[in-house]
Structure formats: C-alpha cells, structure tokens
Design a protein around this nucleic acid. Structure first.
Length: 203
DNA sequence: CTACCGATATCCT
DNA sequence: GGATATCGGTAGC
C-alpha cells in the first residue's frame, strides 16, 4: 500500500484534512503494526486562525514543529494528561496543521486494547470497543503516540499514513471542538468527518 | 441518557 | 493564578 508523501501534506490544510478521511494511519512499534482508518480531522490554519497554537505567529518550543516542513508530526499534551496528534501542513514558515480526532481500528487490535484498557480485544465491553479510538486523546493512547513522536517524519517508517481503499463516503463539515475561546474562528466549519461512522467523536 | 468534576503540562498574565 | 485542540468516573434522571 502506498504511503502519502510530503507533497500530499504540502497543500491547503482544509484539503488535506478532507483527503485524510478514509486513509489509514499506521504505527509500527516493536515489529508490530497498529493501523486505523482516519474518520475525523480538523484543520488549524496558522497565524490567522484564532484557534491555532500558532495564532498571531506565536512561536514557543511546543509549537516549533508547526513552523517546519509539511509531513511531520506535531504531538502536544493537553490538560496535563492527554496527547493530541497533528500532521504539519504547508511549507516551512507557514505554521498550519491537521488534528486527527478519531479513527476506526483495523490492525493490531490487541495492542490497542492493551494500551487503552490493559485487556485483550476479546475482553473488551461494547462501550470499550467503541471508545478505543473515538477521540484525539484516546487515539493517541491506542496507537502509543506520545511526546517521543513529536517532530517525527511521517515519510519515515515508525508512523505514517497509507492511501487506503478509496471507498465512497459522504464528508460532513462541522464546527471544531473545544475552541470556544477562539472568537469568530470558533464557528468556522473546519472539522470534517465520515458521515455515519461510529468512531466519530462528536456528531 | 446528560451533567458535573478532577487530573495537571504548557503557556500567558 | 487562570485557561486549555480531553477523558473517565460518578451522580442523578
């Protein structure tokens, strides 16, 4: 299966966010493959986007990777407990990114179940199966994504996105989640998800 | 099913 | 000190 290359990510973040839907996020850890279909993503449009960490050109150690080339991972900790995984878009100096909010588990189900609940997949309750990857923090925990993967090149072999099956689905546009502080930008429809998919975090 | 609440890294005032 | 790109537990319908 083909991996998405740097040119894919070096485009408008709204296009990248939409086109990431249905693709397969792959994490290789300890010789094991963990994979999940991306079903929900949000675009953060950089210095003009009040919801973005890089709004107004803000540049701290945390957001530094957003100012680099496209196709690298931006992992940050939120609320002191959870990680969020983003993919940097656009050229160096243009600090935009796409946040991956939810995915549908495909491969490595037992590893995800162990990472999230310390159980095998077969031992999970129905609610735990649905809750494996239906939110940005949950997705990171299931795929074992943490600060060590901040700045990782997604054109490498530890963490990357495959093309996927090119199946047909409807894309829903919606307001982003948890950005009430962002003035006018809080209502922009820059979140995209696959219509009807049960792993979408907020319908 | 919804509502609240605590955990606490990072950045800003 | 206060806010945040969240989650899981508990309490109450």
């Amino acid at each position: 299966m083909n991996r998405l290359d740097r040119e894919f990510y070096d485009r408008d973040s709204l296009i990248v966010a939409k086109e990431l839907l249905g693709r397969v996020l792959v994490r290789e850890a300890g010789g094991q493959r963990i994979a999940a279909k991306i079903v929900e993503a949000e675009a953060y449009m950089g210095i003009d986007d009040q919801a973005a960490h890089s709004y107004g050109g803000k540049r701290t150690p945390r957001v530094e990777v957003m100012y680099g080339e496209s196709g690298f991972s931006y992992v940050f900790m939120i609320y002191g407990m959870h990680y969020c995984f983003n993919i940097v878009t656009r050229e160096a100096g243009n600090p935009q990114a796409v946040l991956l909010r939810a995915a549908e588990p495909l491969d490595g189900l037992d590893i995800m179940a162990q990472s999230r609940f310390n159980k095998t997949y077969a031992q999970l309750t129905k609610n735990q199966i649905k809750g494996l990857t239906d939110g940005p923090g949950k997705l990171c925990k299931a795929l074992r994504i943490d600060k060590n993967l901040n700045g990782e090149d997604l054109c490498g072999s530890k963490l990357y996105v495959e093309e996927g099956e090119n199946e047909k689905f409807r894309i829903v546009s919606a307001k982003r989640v948890g950005v009430d502080y962002a003035g006018e930008a809080k209502d922009y429809p820059w979140r995209f998800y696959i219509e009807g998919n049960r792993y979408v975090s907020v319908k």
